[in-house]
């Protein structure tokens, strides 16, 4: 009993310890707030700039979720296509790897050129960042169906479609959920990168402005808010994951996750 509680609380305890350390070090060494504000100053900045922060975080959240949502839909479709068809895999996969290797920061200015700066740019960048891990993980689950199981089903007259629906998709759900946890945090990264580089609204832009004003506490406030939002979204997907695919951690299926 005691251990379970300790396990649940341990990340919170660590967070609090780190915040206290931050406070003590900044105060103890008398570091200027322009260089590094203390924890209390940063949290106060959250309160002080709550209106702007709230508006910016909603914008960031909005573009993140849109980009992420589109990535889930197309990532799953693309993952299924790659997972079940060798020709598609052979043709598409190398290109995707190459594309994924491009630093996303350099893509943003091109996007601005094409679609202007704004919500759409952040959403597209979020999409680009989190698309790949979703595709890969979905494909892995489908491509690694036990050959014996396929034989059992094919000898019953099952079509490829039956095998995908009855076995492939349920089997790849744990891989998919694992990738969604990674993908949502990557989507945040993408949205904030776009906001910072393209200067469209959102937390990224707010921090850019704060930086030019030497408002370091606000920058730290922004970081805290982004981290909190990303962790919250991660938590939602972690909960969904353990709810829908608990069998995967109990059963013998072992799976790895590919991040991006």
């Amino acid at each position: 009993m005691k251990n379970i509680w300790l396990e649940r609380l341990s990340p919170w305890i660590l967070t609090i310890v780190l915040i206290l350390l931050w406070e003590v070090i900044v105060k103890g060494f008398g570091i200027s707030r322009i260089v590094m504000p203390s924890a209390s100053e940063s949290f106060y900045a959250i309160y002080e700039f709550r209106v702007g922060l709230w508006k910016s975080s909603l914008t960031t959240l909005y573009s993140t979720v849109i980009g992420f949502g589109i990535a889930v839909v197309f990532g799953v479709l693309m993952g299924v296509a790659i997972g079940i068809s060798r020709p598609v895999y052979v043709t598409v996969y190398p290109l995707m790897v190459a594309f994924n290797a491009i630093p996303k920061v350099v893509v943003v200015p091109i996007l601005v050129l094409w679609i202007g700066s704004g919500l759409q740019t952040s959403a597209v960048t979020a999409f680009i960042l989190c698309f790949f891990p979703i595709v890969v993980n979905m494909a892995v689950g489908l491509a690694t169906i036990e050959p014996e199981l396929k034989d059992v089903l094919r000898a019953l007259g099952a079509k490829e479609r039956d095998i995908v629906i009855k076995v492939g998709i349920p089997r790849s759900l744990p891989y998919l959920f694992a990738s969604l946890k990674i993908a949502i945090t990557l989507a945040f990264v993408g949205a904030v990168i776009a906001e910072t580089v393209a200067g469209s609204e959102g937390i990224g832009n707010l921090m850019l402005v704060a930086s030019s004003n030497f408002n370091t506490p606000l920058m730290f406030a922004g970081i805290i808010v982004i981290a909190a939002m990303a962790t919250g979204m991660y938590g939602i997907f972690a909960a969904l994951d353990s709810r829908f695919t608990g069998w995967a951690t109990r059963g013998s299926m072992n799976f790895a996750t590919a991040g991006g």
């Binding site: 036990e146 014996e148 199981l149 034989d151 059992v152 076995v167 349920p170 089997r171 759900l173 695919t245 069998w247 995967a248 109990r250 059963g251 013998s252 299926m253």
Partner: peptide, 10 residues
């Protein structure tokens, strides 16, 4: 049927 039961865990 095979050596590996390959039942679906879900």
């Amino acid at each position: 049927a095979f050596q590996n039961a390959s039942l679906l865990p879900w």
